[in-house]
Computed example of a mutant assay.
Amino acid sequence: MDFSLTEEQTLLQDSVDKFVRDNCDVERRRSLNQTELGYDAEVWQQFAELGWLCVPFTEEQGGFGGSAADVMVMSEALSKGLVREPFLTTVVTCGGFLRLGGSAEQQAAHIPAIIEGAKQWAFAFAEDAAGYNLAAVSATAEASDGGFRLNGAKTAVLNGHHSDYLIVSARTSGEARDKAGVSLFIVDASQAGISKQAFNTVDGSRAANIEFKDVEVAADQLLGELGNALPLMEAVIDDSIIAMGGEALGAMQLLLNDTVEYTKTREQFGQPISNFQALQHRMADMYLKVEETRSLLFNAAIQADEGSADKAKACAALKVKIAEAGRFVSQEAIQLHGGIGMTDELNISHHFKRLLVLGMLYGDEDYYVSRYTALSA
């Protein structure tokens, strides 16, 4: 099987790589960590002008008609520059909900604004004590005056602090953990009854805890099928995992490269520490973890683009590897750099924190081992 990039993917990769080299470094990320927004709005507009925000959408939706592999390539290239702009949350995840589950009217109303960089989105699904169970939804949307009345709270909503629109999971029927009875709604974040409490995540990006109190939701704000949102959520999250895999792979590859270079310059006992066999073995183990991630990422992207029935299982396996390999590679990079690896001035610590977030987002290693086992039964 040919795993080489297509001409279009190579051009996309080169375009992102050039932008990253010219504009993105540790100092930029450190400065953005101190801002209320958490990313650069002007750079987001540059993404739109370069056509990057249209990659996942079909041509009929005004997009590039890109594949899962295209998104993977772009995510990997962006990760090398510690890019903070919310491509994953707004374009891949929320854009995925609109692309796969939105009505023609919803797509026409919202996708162009995402492609133009005019609107930000966030997926509000997590709740206290829910764990990673997407069906563990206590927020409710009760029928009211031809629409719904939304009540409840969502926690750790990535990009929720500044989003224009929220995609919110709420229970329209059934008990708190029933798989049936969960629905999705497109909610204008400026609607009355919505309150936000913003905070910084462990990697410095911004998120919010959001409360909904008697928020009036019109019938046409329902996204997808009433009471049957779980399959759509799982499909979109699987696509997001492929993008996350690209980001994790780029981060791990950079950590490996930086560690190898550092050991060539750091000396002990009159010679570079890269000469020590014990350290060579550790870097070889890092290399193996990177390549294992690459293989599982390619497999997941191929399964997704082919519409394979094994896509969900491939994405579950990839998510396990993102958590396990990301933890191993980043910890080894810090240890082989010594104390300097934990400093804010080096990109090592920033990639370590981002890999930690990617390993936990939408489900940790244990959760996806269980999901993979269930899908393989």
Rank of each mutant, 00 (worst) to 15 (best):
G341P: 01
I111M: 10
K321A: 07
E76H: 07
E365K: 04
G38V: 05
L37C: 09
F3H: 13
R371C: 04
V168G: 10
F328K: 05
A118D: 15
S376A: 13
R266S: 02
F185E: 10
G81E: 11
S173I: 00
Y368G: 03
R371F: 04
N275C: 08
S31P: 01
L11D: 13
G245F: 10
E211Y: 02
V168A: 08
F47R: 02
K18I: 08
T35R: 03
L361D: 08
G66C: 06
M1D: 11
L11T: 04
E306H: 12
L256Y: 15
V290P: 00
R30E: 15
E116R: 12
A130N: 07
Y367R: 03
S190A: 12
F64V: 01
G146M: 06
Q253A: 09
A118P: 13
T201L: 12
K80S: 06
L37F: 13
V157C: 11
V320G: 01
G160M: 10
S79D: 12
N200V: 01
T93V: 08
A316R: 01
G66Q: 10
A218W: 06
A48W: 11
M74T: 11
R28W: 13
V91G: 01
D2I: 03
I210N: 06
G102E: 05
A323R: 01
Q13N: 13
R21E: 15
P56V: 02
L32N: 11
Q331S: 12
R171I: 07
A235W: 05
A139E: 08
E142I: 00
D214F: 04
V357K: 02
M74E: 15
G160P: 02
F97Q: 03
A309D: 15
F212G: 04
L184C: 09
H110V: 02
G147K: 01
H162L: 00
L375V: 04
L226M: 08
D238A: 10
N133Q: 15
Y39M: 04
G152T: 05
E85A: 01
Q107A: 10
L5D: 14
G363A: 09
E225P: 04
G326L: 05
P56W: 08
I186D: 02
A153E: 15
E306D: 15
D178M: 02
E36A: 09
D214Q: 14
K213T: 12
L226W: 06
S195V: 12
E291V: 00
H161K: 04
R327T: 09
Q107T: 07
R21F: 11
Y132V: 08
K321E: 13
H337N: 14
R206H: 15
N23A: 13
C54Q: 14
D128T: 09
D305N: 14
D40T: 05
T155L: 09
A126I: 00
S308N: 14
F148V: 08
G38D: 12
A77H: 02
G146V: 04
Q221E: 14
F148M: 11
R177N: 13
G102N: 06
R28L: 14
L361C: 01
E127R: 01
F352P: 01
E142H: 07
S370A: 15
D366Y: 09
L100C: 07
A218Q: 13
C94G: 02
T140Q: 12
A122E: 05
A189D: 12
A129C: 05
Q303D: 14
G96H: 02
T265N: 10
R149K: 11
D220G: 01
M252F: 11
G224I: 06
